[in-house]
Nucleic acid binder design. Structure first.
Length: 599
RNA sequence: GCCGGCGUAGCUCAGCUGGUAGAGCAGCGGUUUUGUAAACCGCUGGUCGGGGGUUCGAUUCCUCUCGCCGGCUCCA
């Protein structure tokens, strides 16, 4: 449907919406929501078959929040066509067509679909091992399908088509691009409306719309490159200041490393070999090739290796808000969430084998505490283990590292999922996803072992016996990319940041000209106290100035009229209403408490 | 990169089947001096993303290109 937005930001993905009926939930009948949605996909396919000529059907599963079906057809389906397709679906629903199951021999099924020219179905059948397989018939639409389904089409009541998109057959960009139509279905009208509302709410919070005052992107300077405006830069300043303070308090040392380096460095690190498709091409500096950095690790390693380290020095924790540049295909760029230049809140921890377990636990702990300071309380954890084939490092180390990751997570009593074989070639990792105010999951933190770089850079420390030993290295980022994190925060709070994060905390407004002098005095006082405050003494109505402050997402407005000019107090209101009158001291204290509570 | 859609003032948007553009907000100038979310009047502002083409004439049609949006693939 044209009016209802296409749901989710491209990346990170919204994995599910909270408080919506999902998964295994049964209705009063015998069906799961998946069954309902999967049946809805069949009904949609049947409608498409009626409306379009020469449709080839690919697959049509139920997904997290609905269903889709992939079609291969000449004519392009456009959002305007949803009305037509929905109407045809309604007809099918009215017809109460039964879903009939047929069991066929593989050869028969092959014959059936190849006669219809359904090449995708025959491809699928050829890969099925069983000799018997099932087809489901719905009117004149018959599909290869394991089932189960609802009894008849009349049981689908509440559905909506949402989006149309291109999708590669079997998800590979080498294959043909098909047309995917997304929709959703629920048991009750109420649930459907709730979901549509959720999509609308998510759209309203889109950081690209609501965060226009924070940043911009300029085509003539290049897509995926962020310009931070005063409010945005102020927000970064606050986040980064908090980040630095907390890192220093937790045993990290801050470092800074160059944004470009000779190719030699990336040859040693293996980036040229393994990561070059993400790197910008080389630039010539006095005949030598240089590269803009895609990662910060080599720089941190150079710092580690420029002095000798005793086992007593470990762990060494080097941290940097390191801006990196990576080539991302134009089609994947998305506001602040997916960009070409971004800042990783990066750290590399060099530890001995004996320290690994404890260190992982404390990093994990630190990450959770850090994120919860920003108002995120719910997390989902993924542990990714060694890939089957492509990996470096010995099995003993992998086992040790994987064990450390698992124990760290288990010690926190948080649910986690294993992603077997999902680790990087250089080591296993923990990813932390956070759940936002709308129940969406976002990937930020990652804690990764690296069995590759210590070796490549011949890193070592001197052990108790005076012998050189290769340390373990852990990469970790808590916020991930600061750009992405700000994007998420903006959506989490709908740009109404809590006091400690608000780029502007207070707007003082005057009622008439006579109050300006008093207001300026108070302004100076509050500025001295470190409050992020500004004064609006323009010749506008009080209401207008309040409205401006609120629409600019300033959390508090301090009003100075004749009464306040006399008493020296400030009449304070938040985004909703009057919250009382305060002396400058009280107000400063209140604001400081607001800040300190969170830190 | 791929499929589809979109691109009109700083912002949000109108502009029917081709006859060189309009509104609200913002900005500027006045009037007004205001008590908790938009005072009033006036004015300025656009080579209709860019190039090429069709046409007597294109914001409107065709084409190329750039960018954006929704997905796919990929990822912090």
């Amino acid at each position: 449907m044209a009016g209802v937005a296409g749901s989710n930001p491209a990346a990170p993905k919204i994995l599910h919406a909270a408080s919506l009926p999902r998964g295994k939930m049964m209705n009063e009948n015998k069906y799961s929501l998946e069954t309902l949605r999967h049946s809805a996909a069949h009904i949609m396919a049947a409608a498409v078959q009626r409306l379009y000529k020469d449709v080839r059907f690919a697959i049509g599963p139920s997904i997290e929040n609905g269903f889709y079906y992939d079609f291969d057809l000449e004519a392009a389906i456009r959002p305007e066509d949803f009305k037509k397709i929905s109407a045809e679906m309604q007809k099918i629903i009215k017809e109460k067509l039964p879903f009939r199951r047929y069991s066929l021999k593989k050869a028969e099924a092959l014959k059936f679909f190849s006669e219809k020219g359904q090449i995708y179905k025959t491809e699928l059948i050829n890969e099925i091992k069983d000799e018997e397989l099932s087809l489901y018939e719905l009117g004149d639409f018959t599909d290869l399908c394991r089932g189960p389904h609802i009894e008849h089409s009349g049981e689908l009541r509440n559905f909506q088509l949402l989006d149309i998109a291109g999708a590669y057959w079997r998800g590979s960009e080498k294959n043909k691009m098909l047309q995917r139509v997304y929709g959703t279905a629920f048991f009750t009208k109420d649930d459907l409306m709730k979901y549509v509302k959720f999509l609308e709410e998510a759209k309203k919070r889109d950081h690209r719309v609501i965060g226009k005052h924070l940043f911009s992107i300029h085509p003539e300077s290049g897509p995926g490159l962020i310009y931070w405006h005063p409010d945005g830069a102020q927000l970064l300043e606050i986040i980064e200041g908090f980040w630095k303070k907390e890192h220093l308090r937790n045993g990290y040392q801050l470092v800074r490393t160059p944004h470009v380096a000779s190719e030699e460095l990336y040859r040693i690190s293996g980036h040229l070999e393994n990561y070059s498709e993400m790197m910008y091409s080389s630039m010539d500096i006095e005949g030598k090739p240089y590269r803009v950095r895609p990662m910060n690790c080599p720089g941190h390693i150079k710092i580690y290796s420029s002095s000798l380290h005793s086992y007593r020095d470990l762990p060494v924790r080097l941290a940097e808000l390191g801006t990196v540049y990576r080539f991302e295909k134009s089609g994947v760029l998305h506001g602040l969430l997916r960009v070409r230049g971004f800042t990783i809140d990066d750290a590399h921890i060099i530890v001995s084998e004996e320290q690994v377990m404890k260190e992982i636990e404390s990093v994990f702990d630190f990450a959770l505490k850090f994120l919860s300071a920003f108002g995120f309380k719910e997390f989902k954890i993924y542990i990714s283990t060694r890939p089957e084939k492509k990996y470096v490092g010995d099995l003993k180390n992998w086992a040790l590292a994987e064990d450390a990751l698992r124990k760290a997570v288990e010690s926190k009593n948080i649910d986690y999922e294993m992603d077997e074989g999902g680790g990087a070639f250089y080591g296993p990792k923990i990813d932390i996803k956070i759940k936002d105010a709308l129940g969406r999951l976002w990937q930020c933190s990652t804690i990764q072992f690296d069995f590759n770089l210590p070796d490549r850079f011949s890193m070592f420390y001197i052990d108790e016996k005076g012998e050189k030993r290769t340390p373990f290295m852990i990469h970790r980022a808590i916020l991930g990319s600061i750009e992405r994190f700000v994007g998420m925060l903006t959506e989490q709070y709908a740009a109404n940041f809590p006091l400690w994060l608000a780029p502007q905390q207070l707007r003082i407004v005057t009622i008439n000209e006579k109050n300006i002098v008093a207001a300026e005095k108070i302004l100076e006082r509050l500025l001295d106290a470190g409050i992020r405050v500004s004064l609006d003494s323009r010749n506008l109505s009080l209401n207008k100035k309040i409205r401006n402050a609120i629409t600019e997402h300033v959390p508090y407005v301090g009003i100075i009229g004749d009464k306040e000019a006399d008493s020296g107090n400030i009449a304070l209101r938040d985004r909703k209403a009057d919250v009382g009158s305060f002396s400058a001291e009280d107000l400063i204290k209140k604001f400081r408490d607001g800040i300190d509570n969170l830190q």
